[in-house]
Simulated assay, not measured.
Amino acid sequence: MPDTRSARPTVLAVWLVIAGVVGWWAAFSLTMERFHLLADPDAIASCDFSLLVQCTANLQSAQGSVFGFPNPILGLTGWVAPVVVGVAVLAGARFARWFWWCFWAGTAFAFGFVVWLIGQSVFVLATLCPWCMVTWAVTIPTFYAVTVHVLRVSGIRWARRLGPWVPLATFLSYAVVAVIAQLRLDWLSQL
């Protein structure tokens, strides 16, 4: 049986690059929308499709600037890390356990922040922001995949069995968000 702690996590690396690029693009798109709205407060964002599906309410809310600056700036900076880590792993880099734990802490923060933002979006703002949902869609599986990898590199033997469960956990997370949004916002009837 191979030592899973020393095996290069190629699938994880590819996912990190893909998720990082998709997440960065969503953050960039939201940042551009925010600039557009700052230049013209009466403008309508290109991602505003209805009262339910829109970016403007989220971007202009207090929740859209939790740390005193627009949240998409976190994405512009934060999504670079998975791309860099993924490319480095594909290039043959091997990181120490402490590095993976620090990287996991970043993904855990992102996951927690996304869960909070989902709650704010659904229960407080009553909107579904398209670019925000793209961010949610890549943050959730990234957190699960990095968590499994960190458990593996930490020498937890049963952790190698968790990898195949990441897609199911991701799907179930998406389903929970969709059901909560449906029960709260009735988004299916507004499509």
Rank of each mutant, 00 (worst) to 15 (best):
T4Q: 14
S6M: 06
A7P: 00
R8K: 08
R8Y: 06
R8S: 15
P9R: 14
P9C: 10
T10Q: 15
V11R: 13
L12G: 13
V17P: 00
S29W: 08
S29E: 15
L30D: 04
H36C: 03
H36T: 08
P41W: 07
D42T: 07
I44H: 01
C47H: 04
D48Y: 03
L51T: 06
Q60E: 02
S61V: 05
G64E: 10
V66W: 08
P70R: 01
N71Y: 02
N71S: 05
L74P: 00
L74V: 11
G75S: 08
G75N: 03
L76Y: 10
V80A: 08
A81H: 11
V84F: 04
V84W: 02
V87K: 15
A88Q: 09
L90K: 10
A93K: 11
F95P: 13
W98F: 06
F99G: 05
W101T: 00
W101E: 12
W104K: 06
A105E: 00
A105T: 04
A110S: 15
G112V: 09
F113Y: 09
V114L: 04
W116I: 06
I118F: 02
G119S: 10
V124L: 05
L125R: 08
T127S: 03
C129D: 14
V134G: 01
T135D: 09
W136G: 00
P141Y: 04
Y144I: 11
A145T: 10
T147R: 03
T147M: 12
V153K: 04
G155I: 12
G155P: 07
R160K: 15
R160Y: 09
L162H: 13
L168F: 13
L172E: 10
L172P: 01
A175I: 10
A175D: 07
A175G: 07
V177P: 06
V177F: 05
W187F: 04
Q190N: 01
Q190G: 00
